[in-house]
């Protein structure tokens, strides 16, 4: 993907990432956490990791990741491109891993029956499909079933693995 992305700061183990969104509302710290899903999952999924993404906010004295906030910083394509870059780098480093992710289902999404965040993730995947599909396998999950990832078809959860 040729899109511009923000500089990423990660932990040595490569499971947590921070970057700063710069936009009309100023500098907003964003966090990405990639967590291993335990071994009691079906074997064919292993090793599988879940990606969580949101704004890193100071709540009282403690930092926390908030995935429900809409920052409105006017830089959504760059933010999404940065998240996609992290996912691509993670999968390139963990060659057998499957990465699972699902956008936060907010009130607007529930009212519309569509996961707005997933739509954004899928838009990023779909618009770079020619390049990404050469290197990665994508699947979707909807109401308890796996399905082939297809452009324009909205999935509840997206799974991706290096080919």
């Amino acid at each position: 993907m040729d899109r511009t992305t923000y500089p990423i700061h990660s932990t040595n183990d490569g499971f947590e990432y921070l970057f700063i969104s710069e936009g009309i509302r100023g500098n907003i710290l964003k966090g990405i956490s990639i967590e291993y899903i335990p071994d009691d999952q079906p074997h064919f999924l292993r090793p599988i990791y879940n990606l969580a993404f949101g704004d890193a906010k100071l709540v009282g004295d403690n930092w926390a990741l908030n995935d429900s906030v809409r920052s409105g910083n006017g830089d959504m394509p760059k933010v999404i491109a940065t998240v996609v870059k992290v996912a691509v780098e993670f999968l390139t480093r963990h060659k057998n891993a499957t990465l699972s992710f699902q956008g936060y289902l907010d009130e607007k999404s529930l009212a519309m029956g569509k996961n707005q965040r997933n739509i954004l993730y899928q838009r990023a995947i779909d618009s770079n499909w020619d390049e990404l599909s050469v290197k990665f396998c994508f699947w979707g999950a909807k109401t308890g079933k796996f399905e082939e990832y297809s452009i324009g078809n909205q999935h509840e959860r997206i799974l991706v693995k290096l080919k």
Binding site: E16, G31, S33, E35, I37, P38, D40, Q41, P42, L45, I48, N50, A52, G54, A56, W63, A64, L65, N66, D67, S68, S100, Q102, Y104, A141, G144, K145, F146, E156, R157
Partner: peptide
């Protein structure tokens, strides 16, 4: 961040959804 309620919730949702597939 790692111990954020939202990350823990996301992880639990993923475990639950994936186990049903």
């Amino acid at each position: 961040i790692k111990n954020s309620p939202s990350v823990i919730r996301k992880q639990q949702e993923a475990i639950e959804q994936l186990s049903k597939l």
